[in-house]
């Protein structure tokens, strides 16, 4: 067992444990903190997969910006106090069915990935994935999506401002 695989096992366990804890934590605030842990673990996995730039983007954008916004809204809305889940959901069979469906999904995905992904090519030699080559690809062959995403971000910004504006 190589050191990389050992690291993968540890970090993967942390990621799954954090996601499970997020699922079952009563408080939305703790759930957000567990989700940050999960994002950090996935960033380490990105490093293992030769994606150092994405790992840093994951930390700064996902675990940083997006989760800070989540925490702001959780504290603003007071979901920690008000967000008590009702003891009996509206549909009684919903929770068992959800768990069964999730298990079915994992088995299906595992079957497809093991039979198909293993049939794919052996991992190629690592390419340079530093900021320089990422930026060249982004401005090169992905120029149009890059421009479109700017419009999407502008629309989201305007939308967020318009939606939360106090109507007097």
């Amino acid at each position: 067992m190589s050191a990389d695989f050992l690291l993968f096992l540890i970090v993967g366990f942390v990621a799954i444990a954090a996601a499970t804890a997020m699922l079952f934590s009563r408080s939305a605030l703790y759930a957000a903190l567990f989700l940050i842990t999960n994002f950090g673990a996935v960033a380490v996995l990105y490093l293992l997969l030769n994606a150092p730039f994405l790992a840093m983007v994951q930390i700064s954008v996902y675990a940083g910006a997006i989760m800070v916004r989540f925490l702001f809204v959780i504290m603003l809305v007071g979901a920690e106090r008000r967000g008590r889940e009702p003891e009996a959901p509206t549909l009684r069979w919903q929770r068992p069915l959800a768990i069964v469906l999730a298990i079915v999904l994992v088995v299906q995905a595992a079957y497809v990935f093991i039979t198909r992904a293993a049939a794919g090519p052996a991992p190629a030699e690592t390419v340079d994935a530093g900021p320089l080559s990422i930026g060249k690809t982004l401005i090169g062959s992905y120029l149009l999506p890059f421009e479109v995403i700017a419009i999407v971000l502008l629309a989201a910004m305007v939308g967020a401002v318009v939606l939360t504006r106090e109507r007097s």
Binding site: D4, A15, V42, A117, A118
Partner: peptide, 20 residues
């Protein structure tokens, strides 16, 4: 690591947890 299958399996498990 000689294969990426464990990573994809982990991603499937995380996706199912999110779905749940």
């Amino acid at each position: 690591m000689d294969t990426v299958t464990p990573f994809v399996l982990l991603s499937a498990i995380l996706f199912a947890l999110g779905l749940t």
